[in-house]
Simulated assay, not measured.
Amino acid sequence: MPSQSHPPDLAEKPRPAGRRRGGTVDYVVERIREALLSGRLALGQRLIEADMTQEFGISRGPWREAMRRLAAEGVVELVPNRGALVRRLSRQDIIDRFRIRQSLEGLAASLTASRMTGTDQRERFRAALELPDGKAEAEAPRAANFRLHRAIAEGAGNPQLLELITQLWGAELRGPEHAAYWRESAAEHARIVDAILAADPEAAERAMRQHLGAVLDRLLATPEAEAPWSGRSGRGG
């Protein structure tokens, strides 16, 4: 696995003004999660403290507190004399997480659909799915996947549900790097979006549950070298 410390754009979003420790820790936790989900961090990658604190412009205290929080969530491992490494999940870990995700993200899809009560709500949801200005279209399959799941989790309007879902996103989102995988996932995403925009909570929840079940089936059917627990594949879901 890669032993590099981190990509140069890991802390690309501006840190909140001020030096409040809790806010700094939250910022680091969010950036690490997003870097893992978007593919900028690899499974098993070492997060070198000296490099990371310089990248984020923070002291060791908030960095170590952020790593302890991510370790408690199962995102990283704290290894004596090596520091923090992005955790690799087992095959069974991934199966278990997908089953939990079906329930939580199904609920999020239902709640998001129930909030599509007018044109403004629908336009905001559509905007959350769009590729940000200045981003290359080549990023679309992986980035669009992350944006959709994030937009639905945020659209539910339930911060505690968002936090639970976010904690489950990790290595289990990895999927094979081939076009057929993404085509199937994109078609399932379209059904979820259609149900949400139609303000149909039951259909949205059903579509999300079916999508995550289908993704899990596809992951379990992939060759071992491409499976997410191998640490070699890209990200799906």
Rank of each mutant, 00 (worst) to 15 (best):
R91F: 03
Q160N: 10
A138K: 03
R33W: 13
D26M: 07
S185T: 11
V86T: 03
E139T: 12
L70T: 03
G74D: 02
V193D: 03
E49Q: 14
Q102W: 00
G134I: 01
L47F: 02
A221Y: 09
A179M: 12
E188T: 08
G74S: 00
A207L: 04
R150A: 11
A17Y: 10
H178P: 04
P223G: 02
P141Y: 02
H6I: 07
R147W: 01
A190M: 06
V193M: 02
A17F: 11
P80S: 03
S114P: 11
E188M: 05
R174C: 09
H178M: 02
A72W: 01
A151Y: 00
A207N: 10
R20E: 15
Q102M: 04
G118I: 03
P228Q: 00
A214D: 09
S90E: 07
L220D: 07
D194M: 03
I196D: 09
A227I: 12
M208F: 08
L36C: 15
I95M: 06
L173A: 13
A42T: 15
I165P: 11
A186Q: 15
I32M: 03
R126E: 09
A156R: 01
G83M: 04
R99H: 13
I192M: 01
L219N: 05
G23N: 11
E130C: 09
T222R: 10
A207V: 04
L168F: 08
E177C: 12
R174W: 06
R150S: 14
I165T: 05
L219C: 08
T53S: 13
V193Y: 04
P141L: 00
R19K: 15
G157W: 02
L85I: 08
L89Y: 05
G44I: 08
T166L: 07
R235E: 14
E172S: 10
P80C: 01
G106M: 01
G118A: 10
A195Q: 06
G237D: 10
A128N: 04
R124K: 12
R64L: 10
P2G: 09
Y181C: 11
G155S: 01
P132N: 00
S38E: 15
D96Y: 05
Q121Y: 09
I192C: 01
A128S: 09
A204R: 00
E123D: 12
V79D: 08
T112A: 07
S90R: 06
E137P: 09
L111R: 07
R206P: 10
G22Y: 05
R232V: 15
R20F: 10
E177W: 14
I95A: 09
A50F: 10
E172L: 10
G175R: 00
E12S: 15
P2T: 10
A207W: 02
P141W: 00
L164D: 07
L168T: 08
S3N: 15
G61Y: 08
K135M: 11
M67F: 02
A35R: 12
A66Q: 05
A42E: 14
